[in-house]
């Protein structure tokens, strides 16, 4: 996809392709800025739907930046998962906020000043740290084939880092089960009776 982007820009600008890394740098920076802006707007807008999908936009921007850094698989999966999660989250927002979402100005802030101070401090500390540390640079050139990186991820997950896979999978399964158990008010036996056919159910209204 980053290749497609290159082609597109070369056509639009009608100039020979500039240095790939420059273009990539501009793209990643711009996408990062978009992610930060949309992320900040999440807590500024009045509408639950807009807040949810601004967060989704932030994730899509980061996903695109990750793709531009040749981590195609991870980037597209970020987009996929986060669109899905935000679609579900929107429903929960509406369900749990307890007010009319589209219309009402919402300010759900408590201890806003303290939170702002904490966030500002963390940003300053992190930035200073980032600028002070002498980051190592890789000896070789950055990867050029995103397909190979996807392959190496799979290779790692099924080889050296098998343990990660083996831990993550049962955790996910446990999450599904626990989530259903916690969230469900009435099991199907309670709803449908012992035979699960609904015949012996005393529910309804009489």
């Amino acid at each position: 996809m980053s290749l497609a982007f290159n082609e597109l820009s070369s056509v639009v600008l009608e100039t020979p392709l500039p240095d790939l890394s420059v273009l990539r740098g501009v793209a990643v920076t711009a996408l990062g800025v978009v992610a930060v802006v949309t992320g900040a707007l999440v807590f500024r807008v009045d509408s639950m739907a807009r807040a949810t999908y601004l967060l989704a936009a932030s994730f899509v921007a980061v996903g695109a930046a990750v793709v531009a850094l040749h981590l195609d698989y991870v980037g597209v999966v970020v987009v996929l998962m986060m669109l899905m999660e935000m679609a579900v989250m929107g429903v929960f927002m509406v369900m749990l906020m307890g007010m009319n979402p589209a219309l009402m100005p919402m300010s759900m802030v408590h201890s806003g000043r303290r939170a702002l101070a904490a966030a500002g401090t963390s940003f300053v500390v992190l930035t200073v740290g980032i600028l002070l540390v002498d980051w190592p640079t890789r000896p070789d050139a950055p990867p050029s084939d995103p397909g190979a990186t996807t392959y190496s991820l799979g290779d790692a997950l099924m080889g050296d880092h098998m343990l990660v896979m083996m831990v993550v999978s049962p955790v996910m399964l446990a999450t599904i089960v626990a989530g259903v158990v916690l969230a469900q008010a009435h099991g199907r036996y309670e709803r449908l009776g012992d035979d699960l056919r609904g015949t012996s159910r005393q529910g309804g209204r009489r």
Binding site: M95, M99, N100, L103, M104, H186
Partner: peptide, 26 residues
């Protein structure tokens, strides 16, 4: 113009116990 509780002059949807699964919906 509306106010906080009546944006655009519309009544806000309130919550009420849902019959289906005990959750509150608009």
């Amino acid at each position: 113009p509306g106010d906080d509780m009546h944006p655009a002059g519309l009544e806000l949807a309130g919550g009420e116990d849902d019959l289906r699964d005990g959750l509150e919906m608009d």
